[in-house]
Amino acid sequence: MSRAPNARPYAEVIGDPVARSKSPAIHNFWLERLGIDAEYRAVRVTAQGLEEYFASRRADPLWRGCNVTMPLKQEVFGALDRADPHAAAIGAVNTVYRDANLLAGTNTDTLGFLEPLRPALGARHLYRMARVIGTGGAARAIVHALAESGFTIVLAGRDEAKARAILDELAPAGEHHAAPLSHFADPTDFAFDDRAGCLDLVVNASPLGMTGQPPLAFDWSHAPPRSIAYDIVTDPVETPFLQGARERGLATVTGLAMLVGQAAAAFECFFGRSPPRDADGELMESLRR
């Protein structure tokens, strides 16, 4: 891995793929607004290249850390000197930063995921239920966040046994359910009540539907009335999953909300400053272009 091309502090996002990542646009927007002479960029790193990457960055005093995206959020543990209890509990790291001479890992995905849901979560509910699709690193953070927020969870994945294992590990106290991915692909004639007083979420926590990935097969007959549909995919921002939800008259949350929220916490780890969140409207508009 080569050294930074210029003599400025820098941070990065690593993963495979990262070419279309919006993280550089977010962090560089904030750096410019704050007048910080630093940069943020995307670097493709495979699981096989992790050791070489961190050996190179440890030796570079200009490197401030990196965000970690798929498929490295669990593999990265072996490269760290320590992971904080939050990341260890989730079993996934999305942010690596320098702590004196050590490489430390944390997970800001939970903060980012919950941020746009705070108004709904501030209310009292008779029951909270979330249907979640995905079993990767981001899904682990989301399951942890939902369990901590009082949700009963149905977790669906290609490997139903893996989904069950995640629930048993991260949310052992609840009456949660695992299902095969195909469960939500076929229509259901289940008669939901109007769910008054309840909070229902339908979350795509997988890369399905992302540019270059297979589509997500989800039949909206599985969503109770008044559900909130949340897709963590950011490319495209307006996914077929969210379009289908809107056609059913449901509220939606795009992946940009989570991306910006988790980036804000990571930015402080890298650059020691809070990002200018008062400019979120302008930032979001630029990311949608």
Rank of each mutant, 00 (worst) to 15 (best):
D37A: 15
Y10D: 04
L31P: 12
R41L: 14
D37Y: 00
N28T: 09
F29Q: 02
F29P: 10
R20F: 09
I36G: 02
G15K: 06
A47D: 04
A7R: 10
G15N: 07
S23T: 12
R44N: 10
S23Q: 08
D37F: 00
I26G: 10
N6R: 13
A42S: 14
F29T: 03
A4N: 05
G15F: 00
P9M: 01
V43C: 13
E12F: 10
P5D: 01
V45T: 08
A47E: 12
V43W: 12
N6F: 14
G35K: 08
G15A: 06
P24I: 04
R41T: 14
V13T: 12
T46Y: 00
A25F: 05
I14Y: 00
K22C: 00
K22I: 05
V18A: 11
Y10H: 13
E12W: 07
V43Q: 15
I36D: 01
F29H: 12
S2F: 11
V18I: 13
I26M: 12
E12Y: 05
R33P: 02
Y10M: 11
A4Q: 02
Y10S: 09
V13L: 14
G35C: 05
S2Q: 13
R20A: 15
P17D: 03
Y10K: 10
R3C: 09
E39G: 15
L31F: 13
E32G: 12
S23R: 05
E32M: 02
V43H: 14
A11C: 08
R8C: 08
H27A: 02
E12K: 09
Q48G: 06
S2R: 15
N28H: 09
N28P: 12
L34Q: 09
I14A: 10
Q48R: 14
E32S: 14
S23I: 07
P17N: 05
P5M: 00
E39C: 14
R33H: 12
S23H: 01
P9A: 11
A7F: 03
I14Q: 01
S2P: 14
Y40H: 13
I26A: 07
V18P: 13
I36H: 05
E39V: 05
Y10F: 15
H27S: 03
W30H: 14
H27K: 05
G15R: 08
V18E: 07
S2A: 13
A7E: 05
L34P: 10
A4D: 00
V43R: 15
I36S: 02
I36C: 09
